[in-house]
Design a protein around this nucleic acid. Sequence first.
DNA 1: TGAATGACATAATTTGAAATCTGTCATTCC
DNA 2: GGAATGACAGATTTCAAATTATGTCATTCA
Lengths: 205, 205
Amino acid sequence: MNDSALTPERILAAAEDVLRRYGPGKATVVDVAQALGVSHGSVYRHFASKVALRDAVLRGWLERVTAPLQAIATSRAAAPARLRQWLGALREIKRDKVLGDPELFATYGALAADAREVIGEHVEHLQQQITSIIAAGVASGDFRKVDARATALAIFDATSRFHYPGMAHLWSGPGEDAAFAQLLDLLLAGLALAPAPAKRRKPTA
Amino acid sequence: MNDSALTPERILAAAEDVLRRYGPGKATVVDVAQALGVSHGSVYRHFASKVALRDAVLRGWLERVTAPLQAIATSRAAAPARLRQWLGALREIKRDKVLGDPELFATYGALAADAREVIGEHVEHLQQQITSIIAAGVASGDFRKVDARATALAIFDATSRFHYPGMAHLWSGPGEDAAFAQLLDLLLAGLALAPAPAKRRKPTA
DNA sequence: TGAATGACATAATTTGAAATCTGTCATTCC
DNA sequence: GGAATGACAGATTTCAAATTATGTCATTCA
């Protein structure tokens, strides 16, 4: 029944398949083992627990989100355009996933729900990408002299309405594109060079 | 057992109490009737269905959120300060509710989950309040000449990270205050007068 | 006469016993 | 000898029966 050696990769692929087919509530490790033609005990040689297996599947899925963004983050485009592109891409990737296959999206959402650790890493990863774009923009003089990291977090927060899966139910409403464009304009304006007359808060320093 | 005439108000109060005590999953209209010392049939004379009753309770709760904000929105403070104050207040009201009584917050969250209509009105109400502040700021020359309504929506979206109940699990993390302050600064900078050198998009008009 | 009742049909929820799943490990297999 | 197996204990899930809830309405009550 089995084609070759039992590797974590093959188990991962099978688990992904089983999850896709059965959903997160019904997929069992026995199912995964069966799909591979082995006993479920064998799976436990490669993954310490069902949770570890689920985490690994989720990690893979999230990496497929992060990878194309990495390319944009490190592109040579001017920082403002690059930031727009990156945020637009993040939004599109997520939105395409929900609209394209809502069930699968829900499945991964369920995995994410009890994988704070993995999600934390993913978020950190995304925030670092934004940070690098902001830092580039500050260095090139395209952006005000902001704290790159803190500003990146603010931008991540500000756009969560358009990328946080818990708000996916809004993504198919009307006027979404316009709302997103409007938000981007506002944020980019806030980063623009012009020395906004700071009436409050600390004095530039 | 009953003190006076059976009014919608008395039923509402009892329903609120029962919901608080039993939680949204176990509160029944028989419980509400019992608390009032009447038969459950009587409740249906005043509310068409259990859903209608739950909606009314939710509406009351949301109005208690909106009322104090209304006062700020119509205050005489300068628009930028007023906007900061308003957004800060919205955040604090919600955060105090979660942190103060998580169970009750969860109860209202459950009510909200199947009350799109009511929530829609609530959101619309909040957005209108922001719109009025922005409009005032544009009129007074404190803000750029933005489209008040569209910008208000963008600001509402941008801050949802700090007021949308679905993200309440983040509100007790460290650095929340700083993150919120940072976001506010960025948004206010984006509204500031300075004619940001718009390299893209439509030409000012 | 208009408000309140409670018996009733249908729908939803609870319950607990049976079935299935997770994770371990002594044993088998190549 | 290292990888795979499958029987097993304890935890979790399923499913169907039984209970409880919702919403209606003919009747009672004041």
